[in-house]
Simulated scan of single mutants.
Amino acid sequence: MSVRLEARAVTVIPDGARAPILAEASVQIRAGEVHALVGPNGAGKSTLFGVLAGDVTTSTGSAWLDGRKLAAYPARELARLRAVLLQQNAVSFPFTVSEVVAMGRAPWARSVHADEDEKAIRAAMTDTDVVELGSRTMPSLSGGERARVALARVLAQRTGIILLDEPTAALDLRHQEDVLALARRRAHEGAAVAVVLHDLNAAISSSDRVTLLSRGTVVASGAPAEVLTAARIEEVYDQPVDVFPHPRTGLPVVLPRR
């Protein structure tokens, strides 16, 4: 699979900080794959995600998209290539759900793809189960409903690269599974998908590749079963675990020792 997006030995040191929050981190996001970024709190997952999205400036190293430095892309061109779902999706004004999802089509205004707007919006709302919420205003929604609307906006953008930062955090069990299934489907259709996850079992079952971070560095990157071993999880998370095959699927299951 071709590499669409990558970070090459990136280090991020915030202004006034003595130590980096991300150090010499490299990752490749490939077309046709779901790539999960995992690690404990403060590991650098969201910072690396921000570098890949083009929202975080690196101190050294750089992010690349299709062999070109990410920083060289004009904003509109970048928005037509990659869509980003952030952890926080606050909407202060009383936009309706339909209006917010339609915002995902803004990069395509006055382009040959503008005639796809209605179809893209409808499909995104259907896929995220928010059709019945279409006329509701954003402030009237629950946290989980707002998260699904934010995802619908990202899907309506119809880009070949999709970046999702903790997309399941505010969702119930059914909608968590729906979101991960959507990510897998988009990858199967050829998209390059990067997703920040806290749930290691979700990372194992839903991703093709995993990058494990700890204290701002990449510990390991590769197939989920090879990266997320019991010994490595215990070392990184400081929590003993058992990893054993699921009785039906055979996929590894991570269970904390209690």
Rank of each mutant, 00 (worst) to 15 (best):
I162K: 02
S59H: 15
S214T: 04
F95I: 10
V38W: 05
A19I: 06
V218Q: 11
H175L: 00
M138H: 03
A36W: 05
E226M: 05
F244Y: 09
A187D: 07
R232E: 11
A106C: 00
A231P: 11
M103N: 02
A17M: 05
K119N: 09
S92E: 06
L213N: 11
A23H: 14
V97E: 00
H246Y: 12
R153Q: 12
E177H: 04
K69Q: 13
R105Q: 08
W108E: 05
P252T: 13
I233M: 09
D208E: 14
A9M: 03
L180E: 02
A223R: 12
I233K: 13
L81H: 15
V84L: 10
R80A: 00
Q176P: 00
A150S: 06
R209G: 01
R232V: 13
A53K: 11
G16C: 07
E77N: 10
V100N: 04
A72N: 14
P245I: 09
T211K: 15
T57F: 12
L213F: 15
I204A: 14
V193W: 02
T47N: 04
G216M: 11
V130Q: 06
D117I: 00
L85H: 02
K69Y: 04
L197Q: 12
V10Y: 04
H175E: 06
L78Y: 10
F93Q: 11
V227S: 13
R105D: 07
D178W: 01
V101D: 08
A203K: 15
R184V: 00
R257H: 02
L197P: 09
A36K: 05
T11H: 11
S62A: 15
V101E: 11
K45C: 01
V179R: 13
